[in-house]
């Protein structure tokens, strides 16, 4: 049977109705990584979900009263309790015998810092919740203050460089390992530079009964100091330099990594962002910090075995990029 259609096959896919959990028209900045990530996550999670969202940019830019950009049931309670609110929602659904999946959304501040306790409790008790952390590496909603996710040496308004300081003094917290240490079924990192990888991981998590965790690297043009149209490039470089390893952990053990075909020099990533500007000065301390950051990248590459074996891999950090939605083009 053949069907006549006036639409060329190549455009057909665009006509295909696609579920959207987060509509356009929200108030995020141009090139906001978080907005993109939230759209990808909700799109892949599908309509049979409900969301507990922590305070943060995502919450603010999607719901300027009386408007809302969400097409799924969504509640914002407070900054520090998304994990617990989600746990309550899940318990209620369970009590009612319903299968709707609960998602919890938080920024890095809401996850690594102030909401950490509620998150840990939720994981430990085994609630059937997918917790997504939109990691833009600072408190953006309040104007770019450091969080425990802010990379070492990065400038924020509470970790400014100066006579006595070279940006943030401490290291980025390794949250995914801490989460995995709860021995939950599935924990993973992802990046907006790799949309199909995000989709795959969300679907994977949705299929699991139990607590799952996804940490997505989301550049913030405003807070990182790069142009809005460079968000994807910046995100990709974070992965390709080894600074943001893309990994999957099952029951606490490393299960999968995205290999790096061409490892990029770390400075390529840093140079694109104003938040690392002070590291490119004559200051001796700057040189020291650059070496420090390179050591962190090298360490990641080493412990996660990120170096690819030399061959072409559709799922490595070069190939993944070209694996398009709904089909695979071998790189």
């Amino acid at each position: 049977m053949t069907t006549e259609t006036a639409i060329p096959i190549s455009k057909l896919r665009k006509k295909q109705p696609r579920f959207r959990g987060l509509e356009s028209g929200h108030r995020a900045c141009l090139g906001c990584g978080e907005a993109l990530a939230a759209r990808l996550v909700t799109e892949s999670a599908g309509p049979d979900v409900m969301v507990a969202n922590a305070t943060g940019c995502l919450e603010i830019f999607t719901t300027p009263w009386p408007e809302s950009a969400w097409r799924i049931p969504w509640v914002h309670s407070l900054f520090e309790n998304a994990g617990a609110v989600a746990a309550g929602m899940e318990a209620a659904l369970k009590a009612q015998g319903k299968s709707t999946k609960v998602l919890a959304f938080g920024g890095d501040g809401g996850t690594f810092d102030i909401g950490f306790q509620a998150l840990s409790g939720m994981l430990e008790r085994g609630h059937n919740v997918l917790y997504v952390c939109f990691d833009n590496e600072a408190y953006m909603n309040t104007g770019i203050q450091r969080s425990s996710s802010t990379p070492h040496a990065a400038m924020t308004t509470t970790s400014p460089p100066g006579k006595e300081r070279m940006g943030k003094r401490h290291l980025k917290k390794d949250i995914v390992s801490i989460v995995a240490a709860h021995h939950i079924p599935y924990a993973a990192t992802a990046s907006i530079a790799y949309p199909s990888d995000i989709r795959k991981k969300v679907r994977r998590a949705m299929a699991i009964e139990g607590p799952t965790f996804l940490q997505i690297h989301c550049p913030c043009p405003l807070g990182w100091g790069h142009e809005g149209d460079h968000s994807i490039t910046v995100a990709r470089l974070a992965v390709q330099t080894g600074l943001y390893p893309i990994i999957e952990l099952e029951r606490g053990g490393l299960a999968n990594v995205m290999p790096l075909r061409n490892i990029r020099p770390m400075t390529e990533y840093l140079k694109m962002q104003q938040r690392f500007r002070h590291l490119f000065t004559d200051d001796l301390r700057a040189k020291e910090e650059l070496e420090h950051l390179q050591a962190i990248a090298d360490h990641n590459i080493e412990i996660y075995g990120l170096r690819s074996d030399g061959g072409k891999d559709a799922f490595d950090s070069e190939g993944m990029d070209t694996v398009r939605r709904g089909g695979m083009r071998w790189a």
């Binding site: 408190y139 309040t142 104007g143 203050q145 308004t157 509470t158 970790s159 400014p160 460089p161 100066g162 006579k163 006595e164 300081r165």
Partner: peptide, 19 residues
């Protein structure tokens, strides 16, 4: 940090960073 306290703390951070 919390709006509208943030600028106080940011200014203090700067004083500390500058010694």
């Amino acid at each position: 940090p919390i709006t509208p306290q943030t600028h106080i703390v940011e200014n203090i951070s700067k004083l500390v960073a500058d010694g």
